[in-house]
Design a protein around this nucleic acid. Sequence first.
DNA 1: TGTATTTTATTTGTCGACAGAATCCGGCCG
DNA 2: CGGCCGGATTCTGTCGACAAATAAAATACA
Lengths: 233, 233
Amino acid sequence: MAKDTTVRTERKRGEGVQFVYQVLRDDILNLALPPGSPIDENQLAERLSMSRTPIREALVRLAGEGLVTTLPNRSTVVSNIDFLDLPSYFDALTLMYRVTTRLAAENRTPQDLGRIRALQGDFARAVAAQDAAAMISVNRDFHAAIAAAGRNSYYTGMFSRLLDEGRRLLRIYYSSFNDQLPRRYVEEHEDIIAAVEARDIARADQLATQHADQIVQKLQRLIAQDRRRHIEL
Amino acid sequence: MAKDTTVRTERKRGEGVQFVYQVLRDDILNLALPPGSPIDENQLAERLSMSRTPIREALVRLAGEGLVTTLPNRSTVVSNIDFLDLPSYFDALTLMYRVTTRLAAENRTPQDLGRIRALQGDFARAVAAQDAAAMISVNRDFHAAIAAAGRNSYYTGMFSRLLDEGRRLLRIYYSSFNDQLPRRYVEEHEDIIAAVEARDIARADQLATQHADQIVQKLQRLIAQDRRRHIEL
DNA sequence: TGTATTTTATTTGTCGACAGAATCCGGCCG
DNA sequence: CGGCCGGATTCTGTCGACAAATAAAATACA
């Protein structure tokens, strides 16, 4: 059962949809609402103390991003993660890692570097604190900041969506850490920052590729493990 | 003023939103609703003889795709084409042309080739008929079919959105033809099909790049022309 | 006559209600 | 005992209405 979080914050007119959207999005990406969970409009309406109309509009928006699936005349559910489609996902993710990092090396400003460094600091702290949730969230922001430095809104938009989808995957498989991989990620991030700062496009591309491959391989291994476990049952 | 198209088709329950969505989307992509047009919910509700609720949900969906922009407490308008951002657009479009065509060469099935050839036939016919609208629409479907043959849902999704956005651009600048470029596109399409059929990935990539550059350059030239005209006024 | 301010009107965001669809449940029949 | 059918219930999709917010109009004032 979900927590009995009856929210009754007074909100200004027009912020309702945005509010519901963010609440649901966070719950979905943090797996507080696991894939497949039905989303009851009435229940949500009561919990957030508002009518069903803004909730439906938020759901439409989430459906547009693929985070929920609307079954006609039936309940909308949190979208499943399609494991058969994961190779495609990894492929697309790697590509976006590369092009955004390349463009960042090309177009970054000192302000961009400042923002990126700040997030890298957050990431290092999360690793030191062994806080998986923070690591996942900050890692996302870190790469989004690099993408932003590339100044291509189409890439940043696509990449953000891919990273969000990835947050769910990481949440599933990275709930606990007992290896030193995170530290390695910190180092790889440092190298990427250095390449971006040096405007070394080729090296940025190379490092981004490595970094992406690193993550993809790790995930594939974890998933394969998981698969085996399921089959053994 | 828009045409007095009072639609009163009897629709089944649950198809309302979908219907409004498609009507609006078509009108926007065909520039029947030019960028900047305000969208009056009441007016639309009366024209399609339904309540405002499904219309609002369709608008939320369109906003999610960036085709309309919702000004808080004010009218929603058809999104403008951001000409300053066009270099980014061209960059992203070229990249997606390349990766989708590459993957098509890798994964195409005979069925894929059949579908692609059929669309290429449609395209050739549209060119022969000098039908700009059909050319734009079929061209989109042609490349979407190639992307589909690549079997990467993330790429096909991204690419489709880029191609749709491009439809508006092409509509603006390709309303009339007086050069033989379209014929050249037919030939380039043929070459791409051949490379995809031969599973020649390198060549597919190369041809896709050329094809994209071709279109991008043409558009840039037309836009530059247009800019100059505006400045002269 | 032009500008500032109040009044009116239009339009959005939200609400509660209702009807159609689907699910659940119990009874009936094989 | 199990499966099919019908009624009751729950939930979605749509509707009309209302109030906040904005834009337009009208009025007052310099």
